[in-house]
Design a binder for these strands. Structure first.
Length: 339
DNA sequence: AATTCGGGGTG
DNA sequence: CACCCAGAATT
């Protein structure tokens, strides 16, 4: 058995922490949370488990500030899983708006259908059951079980990972993705009492104080005990390279989806404007076609063309969108899914 | 373990 | 422009 020096395989990467320090940090975080937590709508005591689940899905890789207005609209439109289950998928994608990763909206509706059809319209309470639902992984399952049902789980998101690594391991940032060792290590810090406040509190602390870029160490309530701070806040050697955006398939896919949504809205007008956009096999973007579109749709289509002049590439991405269930052929034209 | 998947706000 | 955001699913 050979040992590599990577954080994941290094036995000291997740060190054992003395109990007095653990208790001190737990108490500090929990009392900080009760004093400083943001008043997010899904933290209201009257919020349903379904509403919590929706907030967690929307918040995956998306800042809370952008989630909040969408979440309010969703809760008004679809207050229970059964409501979302029955909604037209095109409307689901519309109300998802620009939260990003639109497949999350598809998965959420799939999950709603499972809950409505097979689970009595009740959100599961255990991590194991939650993990069975589409779009729910280890983080979301633990978060819903904890925040919606009060279960003692290990919530490990990007904030929690960063706080724990800094305070207890003295490093600036965690590895790319959490492994089993890190999860078990984090589980050791979840207290027997007030574990919901701990889970929510560490997350909130990472979002507001122990931030990725400019952490508020000067006024941090943990500054005297934080290992990273005591070591002089050394920078991590390797920072993962971020993905490009401009010119990528992702950008172009987004523009195509935007065109479909815009066209879908225009088509819903009483006048019934004919939408010649794409077919699944051929791209149709000639000037005559554009001229027949309403202004907003024409602009959205022009944006697609602006991003790429390669019709084969656009056709390939359209095929991918159809395969992913994000688009659908309808009456010979491309449209949002009508199911 | 590495990639892919959106989109926008911020330093 | 680089980085980051309550990650999940696939390869």
């Amino acid at each position: 058995m050979t040992h590599r020096a990577s954080p994941e395989t290094n036995p000291t990467a997740f060190p054992e922490v003395a109990e007095p320090l653990v208790s001190r940090v737990q108490e500090t975080i929990i009392s900080w949370f009760e004093a400083e937590a943001r008043e997010l709508p899904w933290r209201d005591p009257n919020t349903t488990a379904w509403a919590v689940l929706v907030s967690e899905i929307m918040s995956q890789q998306t800042p809370v500030s952008r989630v909040e207005p969408r979440w309010r609209e969703w809760m008004e439109a679809w207050p229970t899983p059964a409501d979302l289950a029955l909604a037209p998928t095109a409307e689901v994608l519309h109300r998802w708006d620009r939260l990003g990763y639109p497949r999350r909206a598809l998965r959420l509706q799939e999950a709603a259908r499972v809950i409505a059809d097979d689970l009595g319209n009740e959100v599961p309470e255990t991590v194991e059951e939650l993990l069975e639902l589409p779009g729910i992984g280890s983080y979301t399952a633990a978060a819903v079980a904890s925040f919606a049902h009060g279960q003692r789980t290990t919530v490990l998101d990007t904030n929690v990972r960063r706080v724990l690594i800094r305070v207890f391991a003295g490093r600036e940032r965690p590895a790319t993705s959490p492994g089993r060792r890190e999860t078990e290590w984090a589980t050791g810090f979840v207290p027997e009492q007030h574990h919901v406040e701990w889970n929510a509190g560490v997350m909130e602390f990472g979002a507001l104080v122990c931030t990725a870029r400019n952490p508020g160490c000067a006024d941090c309530p943990l500054r005297d005990v934080c290992t990273w701070n005591r070591l002089g806040r050394p920078a991590s050697a390797t920072k993962p390279k971020t993905q490009k955006w401009a010119g990528t398939d992702r950008q172009l896919r987004g523009a195509i989806m935007d065109a479909l949504k815009t066209a879908h809205s225009a088509e819903a007008e009483p006048a019934g404007i004919s939408i010649d956009l794409f077919t699944t096999s051929v791209t149709v973007l000639d000037p005559d076609t554009l001229g027949s579109l309403d202004e907003s749709t024409a602009a959205a289509v022009a944006r697609v063309r602006e991003l790429s002049a390669d019709d084969q590439r656009i056709s390939r991405l359209i095929s991918d969108l159809v395969a992913d269930g994000l688009a659908q052929e309808h009456a010979g034209r491309l449209d949002l899914p009508r199911t």
